[in-house]
Amino acid sequence: MQNKRSKKMVSVLLVIVFAIVFILITRKTTKQEQPAPTPAQSGQTVIAPDAPLQYTKHARCRMDCRGISEAEVREVLREGHINYQKSDLNDKPCPTYAIEDRVAEGQDLRIVFGICDQSVKVITCIDLSEEHDCACS
């Protein structure tokens, strides 16, 4: 009698565990499939599109090597979406945001911005569609 009861309990527990795993997998898959909204679509105002930008030496080198203009950096800032997997909101000394967009020239770009107090720094510029051999430090 007790053996039947133990088997029934194990069966019930297995069903519960499988249900939880199924729910977790379904939720994770659904979140990954949805593209992040653009700042304009979601009302995000992380960085004002007309904010004064300071370019690091590294960013300038990457821009030069990859043929990325200041106008394209602004375009990404204005129309792109935040890639939270590549951003670090707990970065020190300032949070960093990786914003991605396909610019008018056809390049898929990721621009990493650092936001400290009232300043916005362009940290690096990445061309996601083409590998470049840059000698930037």
Results as ranks from 00 to 15, higher is better:
Ala19Ser: 15
Cys61Lys: 04
Asn90Cys: 11
Asp133Ser: 13
Leu109Gly: 00
Glu130Trp: 06
Gln85Val: 12
Tyr55Gly: 01
Val12Lys: 13
Cys65Gly: 02
His58Met: 04
Thr124Ile: 00
Asn3Met: 15
Pro93Trp: 02
Gln44Arg: 14
Arg5Gln: 12
Arg62Val: 05
Gln44Ser: 15
Gln85Ala: 14
Leu77Thr: 03
Gln34Ile: 13
Val46Trp: 06
Pro95Leu: 05
Glu72Ala: 09
Cys116Ala: 09
Gly114Cys: 03
Val76Pro: 06
Ile111Gln: 08
Lys8Asp: 10
Cys116Met: 04
Glu33Ser: 14
Ile123Tyr: 00
Lys92Cys: 03
Thr56Ala: 07
Thr56Cys: 08
His81Cys: 01
Ile99Phe: 03
Ile126Glu: 04
Pro37Ala: 09
Asn83Ile: 03
Arg60Ser: 07
Glu130Met: 12
Gln118Gly: 11
Ser137Ala: 15
Leu14Met: 15
Val76Ile: 00
Gln34Asn: 12
Lys92Tyr: 06
Glu79Cys: 07
Gln34Tyr: 11
Val73Thr: 00
Arg5Ser: 11
Val15Ser: 14
Cys61Asn: 00
Arg5Cys: 11
Pro95Gly: 03
Thr38Gly: 07
Asp133Ile: 10
Cys94Phe: 03
Leu109Val: 07
Gln54Phe: 12
Thr45Ala: 13
Arg60Leu: 11
Ile126Pro: 06
Lys31Asp: 14
Cys61His: 02
Ile68Gln: 03
Lys92Asn: 09
Leu109Asp: 02
Ile82Ser: 07
His132Val: 11
His58Gln: 05
Arg60Trp: 06
Pro35Lys: 01
Phe18Val: 14
Ala48Cys: 03
Leu13Asp: 10
Ser42Val: 06
Arg110Lys: 07
Tyr97Met: 04
Thr45Asn: 14
Leu24Cys: 15
Tyr84Gly: 05
Ala104Gly: 10
Ala71Leu: 09
Thr56Met: 06
Thr26Gly: 14
Tyr84Phe: 10
